[in-house]
């Protein structure tokens, strides 16, 4: 409980989290777990961005895998076909996807609820089909190979440990920027839009501008994650960026707890490592995943992190009551 409330004051939570990330490698014995940690970090970056859009602003996206994929493919293609350095790949991807997301975001974010869900889902599928069909660029379904390993400013990140720390730097940077955004005029405007678009606009909040703005920002996070992924895995196949992955991302946000950045990281960590736990179930993996989704939504609609927090609080108040009664009787 204490630990949870420390996490509430963002900056001390941030420092604690940084220390945790720094020390984590010393507890990891095996390369395979490094791999999982790196993927968790990459997914966390996307999910933090998605949470800003979905959890804080209340706008759903079922197509975020596409922007992740665009980040990965743009840097991958530049690297594999024209030997561009990774940093150039990142910048080009950020600019292209930023402009694209801006142009798409204007008409898309006028939609609400299920319509917005279907529009973003459609976008995701269209981009996925482009990954598959633009053979000459993407390598099509058989995949894109020959992506150079990550090197920045003359340093090559070729060990799992160094890549882990690289991902951590980006994760912490994204997290810090997001904490700042959330606790600012912008963050309040976003949550106001979530609460009531009409009330927000009556107070002068330019609703469509802020919605498109946060949409673009969240796609830029996804692009950064895609860039980290491409230079880590060095092989891209469209199936990593399909509809199911978009669903998985939104599930991470929802299960982790909508509108909580720590929840986003928690959700990403849980769902990324879940398949590792579910290996015990083998063939049952998909159905168990579906079942968990349903159960969490029914019993902890505020997400697991908040759900657990509520549970702990309830336990504590029960204990207190119990103690009080005992002291009264004695």
């Amino acid at each position: 409980m204490r630990a949870l409330s420390i996490m509430r004051t963002p900056y001390s939570g941030f420092v604690l989290f940084s220390i945790l990330l720094l020390l984590l490698p010393f507890t990891v014995a095996n390369d395979y777990y490094f791999n999982v940690l790196i993927i968790i970090g990459i997914n966390s970056i996307i999910v933090i961005g998605l949470d800003l859009l979905v959890g804080y602003t209340g706008q759903i996206s079922l197509g975020h895998a596409a922007f992740y994929g665009l980040g990965a493919y743009i840097t991958g293609i530049l690297s594999a076909r024209w030997a561009w350095p990774p940093i150039a790949g990142l910048l080009v991807a950020l600019v292209i996807v930023g402009i694209l997301a801006f142009l798409i975001g204007i008409p898309t974010l006028k939609l609400h609820g299920h319509y917005l869900a279907m529009a973003t889902l459609g976008l995701g599928i269209i981009v996925f089909i482009l990954f598959q069909e633009l053979n000459f660029l993407t390598g099509g379904p058989s995949g894109l190979v020959g992506i150079a390993p990550m090197s920045l400013f003359g340093f090559t990140f070729d060990s799992d440990l160094s890549y882990y720390y690289l991902v951590c730097v980006f994760l912490l940077a994204t997290l810090l920027l997001s904490i700042n955004v959330v606790r600012s005029r912008v963050g309040r405007a976003l949550r106001a839009i979530h609460g009531s678009e009409i009330a927000a606009s009556v107070l002068g909040v330019n609703v469509s501008r802020f919605k498109v703005g946060i949409f673009v920002l969240s796609t830029l996070y996804a692009v950064t994650a895609g860039w980290l992924y491409a230079h880590y895995i060095a092989f891209l196949s469209p199936s990593s960026f399909g509809f199911m992955f978009s669903i998985k991302l939104i599930t991470m946000v929802v299960i982790g707890s909508l509108g909580s950045l720590w929840g986003a990281i928690f959700g990403a960590a849980l769902l990324t490592s879940l398949p590792e736990f579910l290996v015990v179930f083998e063939h049952y993996e998909t159905s168990v995943f579906g079942l968990i989704l349903i159960l969490v939504m029914i019993f902890m609609p505020r997400g697991l992190l908040r759900g657990l927090e509520d549970l702990v609080r309830k336990l504590i108040s029960m204990l207190r009551k119990d103690l009080k009664e005992r002291s009264l009787t004695s």
């Binding site: 997001s178 600012s184 005029r185 963050g187 405007a189 107070l203 909040v205």
Partner: peptide, 17 residues
């Protein structure tokens, strides 16, 4: 504080930084 939206200026990038 949302009510003071019009009387303040912090944007996405300035707030993030």
């Amino acid at each position: 504080m949302v009510g003071m939206h019009l009387r303040s200026k912090g944007g996405f990038f300035t707030s993030a930084l």
